[in-house]
């Protein structure tokens, strides 16, 4: 019988259902079918944030109203119930809850934790911020939104692999010619990057030519408007002429409004979640004392 034959699959299916029902419903005395005791939740002291959120979700009855939790539990029940597949969804769902399956199923747990965290956070989202509030947030976090330094340059390239040992001398000659007549049309070796580059940040230059090149270009004297170099890249030597240099500067609100707004919401959400967790922890402490 081939391992892909349906007959084998159905035979396996039978074995699976049998094993599954034994495994799931076996109690310590080995009486299949008996409902399990609800597992007590672990003690609260030292509970992780996730544990707190999970308990709060259960306390709020989220597991009863969440459509995905419901679907998951019903599917679990159908999976084990097998031959009892005629049972109505509502009944299977009740049975799953009675079995405490929602407390032990990892997927349900993850869902409820995530949902609780998002709920707590979204409560902190608050009203739409106005320009004033956005500007204040931007000012407070100026470094995060700062616009990076950038240069616009032209480069003439001499290839390491084409020129071999003549590279340094060729570069010297090229630069001498360029300096003698900055307007001269000298072609270097081909490179798939343009000779006249648009405004580039240090990071962008490093991506195209390697980090050494980017470092060297940004270290060039600010007042050097002629051809400079040779500057080493990952591929060879370059003559470089800087046309424009934009210093790093704080961003204007108009440029970064969307990102600032999201960052502000994120900060509010984080605070709200922290407040909620602190409250849960405090309340949990009181309850433990009362116990």
């Amino acid at each position: 019988m081939s391992v892909r034959s349906p007959a084998l699959h159905f035979a396996l299916l039978g074995a699976l259902l049998f094993a599954a029902s034994r495994l799931l419903f076996a109690d310590p005395d080995g009486r299949a079918g008996a409902a399990r005791q609800l597992q007590p939740l672990p003690p609260l002291a030292g509970a992780s944030d996730e544990e707190l959120l999970f308990r709060e979700a259960l306390a709020l009855g989220m597991h009863e109203s969440d459509s995905l939790v419901r679907r998951r539990l019903i599917q679990n029940m159908r999976f084990v119930a097998g031959s009892a597949a005629q049972t109505a969804d509502d009944e299977l769902f009740r049975e799953a809850l009675a079995l405490g399956m929602h407390q032990t199923d990892l997927v349900v747990r993850r869902r409820l934790i995530q949902k609780m965290a998002l709920l707590a956070a979204s409560e902190g989202r608050g009203r739409e911020p106005g320009d004033h509030e956005l500007q204040a947030f931007l000012t407070e976090h100026a470094a995060r939104f700062a616009r990076p330094e950038a240069v616009r340059l032209s480069q003439v390239f001499l290839s390491r692999e084409r020129r071999g040992e003549a590279l340094a001398d060729d570069a010297k000659a090229l630069l001498a010619a360029l300096r003698a007549d900055p307007g001269v049309e000298l072609s270097g070796d081909p490179l798939p990057h343009p000779r006249d580059l648009p405004l580039r940040t240090r990071e962008q230059l490093a991506k195209s030519f390697g980090p050494e090149f980017a470092r060297a270009v940004f270290a060039l004297p600010a007042d050097g408007h002629g051809w400079q170099g040779p500057i080493l890249s990952s591929y060879g030597l370059h003559g470089v002429r800087i046309h424009e240099r934009q210093p790093a500067r704080p961003a204007r609100l108009a440029e970064v409004r969307g990102a600032v707004r999201e960052a502000l919401f994120e900060a509010r959400a984080r605070e709200a979640l922290d407040r909620r967790l602190a409250a849960l922890r405090a309340r949990g402490g009181e309850e433990e004392e009362t116990d």
């Binding site: 396996l12 495994l23 993850r110």
Partner: peptide, 20 residues
């Protein structure tokens, strides 16, 4: 989560589990 018990089953009898 294939830490879930359903997926443990699946790993042992995948094709059968598929039908279920």
């Amino acid at each position: 989560g294939y830490d879930s018990w359903v997926c443990h089953m699946y790993r042992r009898w995948p094709r059968a589990a598929f039908y279920v």
